[in-house]
Simulated scan of single mutants.
Amino acid sequence: MVQQLQPETTAGVIYPDSDGQPMADNTKQFRWIVTIKENLEILFATRDDVFVAGDLLWYPVQGDNKIRQAPDAMVVFGRGKGDRGSYRQWEENNIPVQVVFEILSPGNTLKEMAKKLQFYQRYGVEEYYVYDPDRIDFNGWLRVGNTLEVIEDIQGWISPRLGIRFDLNPTTLEIYYPDGRKFLTSVELSQKLEQESQRAEQERQQKESALTELEAERQRYQDLLQKLQQQGINPEEL
């Protein structure tokens, strides 16, 4: 059952902005966290009511700073964008985090992940996704009533909240925007923008060349017309 988060105010409680844990244990995990978080930012860039964050502490219960979790990436609908030191739910119109992503590293234990699942189930997460980039293993849970139930057929799954699609192949997980575009790393995105810029420049040069040739052809016509007129020949009478 999702806990009702309306405890009495406890004065003097400090809610740290850091739990002392690293964001990632290795480059692969870090790359996946950043890629998912940044692409979600892009996806909802025009929505002022969608908050996206990565490795941000979420405190669901006012007065208890021990109840907390820092999802690798999280999405909250109904809350404005902006910087935060932590997500203190009672200061956010009591809206819980709705979508969570966790990227596994070799240091994650089954006990740790089980506790995270219990936490997300208890405090209102609607969609929970876990990807292990070393084992190429992807799993998801969807809220049904008061529990998070395993998504049995995750291949090709489309997130109800986000509208993004997940495709798991033998070498990696691929995530697609609702319009079919693929989630890209910052390097891949930069390369794609550079390619598009080069293609646009080539098209501009081709158009410029075509216009130059057209102008040259027009000038040749005018020169020929002038020569004919100098010889007393009116082309319109031919």
Rank of each mutant, 00 (worst) to 15 (best):
N39D: 05
V34N: 04
V61I: 15
I36K: 01
G20L: 11
M23F: 08
R47S: 14
V52H: 09
T27R: 12
T35Q: 06
Y59P: 03
Q62R: 13
Q21A: 12
D17V: 07
F30H: 13
L40F: 12
I14Y: 09
P16R: 08
D48P: 02
L57E: 03
Q21T: 12
N65G: 01
S18L: 02
N39K: 05
Y15L: 01
I42L: 15
R31N: 13
D49R: 06
E38L: 13
D17Q: 10
D48T: 10
V61D: 00
L56H: 06
I42H: 07
D25L: 11
K28L: 15
W32F: 13
L43P: 08
I36F: 14
L57N: 13
Q62D: 14
Q21D: 04
Q62G: 14
V50W: 08
Y15T: 01
V50N: 07
Y59N: 03
V34I: 15
E41L: 12
D48W: 04
W32K: 05
A53L: 04
F51P: 01
W58N: 13
P22Y: 07
Q21N: 12
P22E: 06
E38P: 00
R31L: 11
Y59S: 04
E41G: 04
E38K: 12
D25I: 01
G54R: 08
G63P: 11
R47K: 15
V52Q: 07
N65C: 07
